[in-house]
């Protein structure tokens, strides 16, 4: 009655996970890590784990790997008067912002032919085309007439649609019944580069 059997309560010998059977195959230790270094420590451990797991050949860094040494302090830091321009810093001018208003709807198209010379469109020029703009009369447009691309000035008058060339040597295109016309986009600028 007064003997206490060892079978109840307390640690049982041989219970639990086997020693060194964890991810690291060796003893581990609990330690505090500064929050700012957690990711770094984790990634180091991940690398270590993945190498223990996969039997891959571990590549040690070649000490002579191509490298470039730079002097750390190439110029002295002025600890004096701050630049008077600091408060007036502005973004540099950006041509993209200037020329493109609807980024997702803007396409570049290369012009060929001389039918729009007087509108300043030369063969080889790059046209900035905005597909989102409404095709208003007198705009220069990329039109598709019966499946063919053309760049012309759009004219709408009393229900009649004409695609006007800007060069007297070229004929205008009058859209008649039976023609299929799609306005593909509106030309917003021309980029003409001098050779």
């Amino acid at each position: 009655m007064n003997t206490i059997t060892q079978n109840h309560g307390g640690a049982r010998t041989g219970a639990g996970r086997k020693k060194n059977s964890g991810k690291f195959k060796e003893d581990t230790k609990v330690m505090r890590v500064p929050v700012s270094l957690v990711e770094q420590v984790k990634s180091t451990l991940d690398v270590y784990k993945s190498q223990l797991k996969s039997n891959v050949e571990v590549f040690e860094f070649d000490a002579n790997a191509p490298s470039l040494s730079i002097p750390i302090f190439s110029s002295r830091v002025q600890a004096g008067f701050p630049s008077p321009a600091d408060d007036h810093l502005e973004d540099r001018l950006d041509l993209n912002k200037h020329l493109i208003h609807h980024q997702e709807a803007t396409f570049f198209v290369r012009a060929q032919g001389e039918s729009m010379l007087n509108a300043g469109i030369h063969p080889g020029d790059i046209l900035v085309v905005d597909k989102s703009l409404p095709a208003k009369s007198s705009k220069i447009v990329i039109a598709v007439v019966d499946g063919e691309f053309t760049v012309k000035r759009l004219h709408k008058y009393k229900g009649k649609i004409t695609l006007k060339a800007e060069n007297p040597e070229f004929d205008d295109i009058e859209i008649c019944e039976g023609n299929e016309l799609i306005i593909w986009g509106v030309v917003t600028s021309v980029i003409h580069q001098y050779a």
């Binding site: 990634s43 690398v47 190498q51 996969s54 891959v56 050949e57 590549f59 040690e60 860094f61 790997a65």
Partner: peptide, 18 residues
Amino acid sequence: KTMGMSTPISDENLLIPL
């Protein structure tokens, strides 16, 4: 064939020769 590295690398000058 697979090769592991002791340090993570992201530089093509190391990866291409490897």
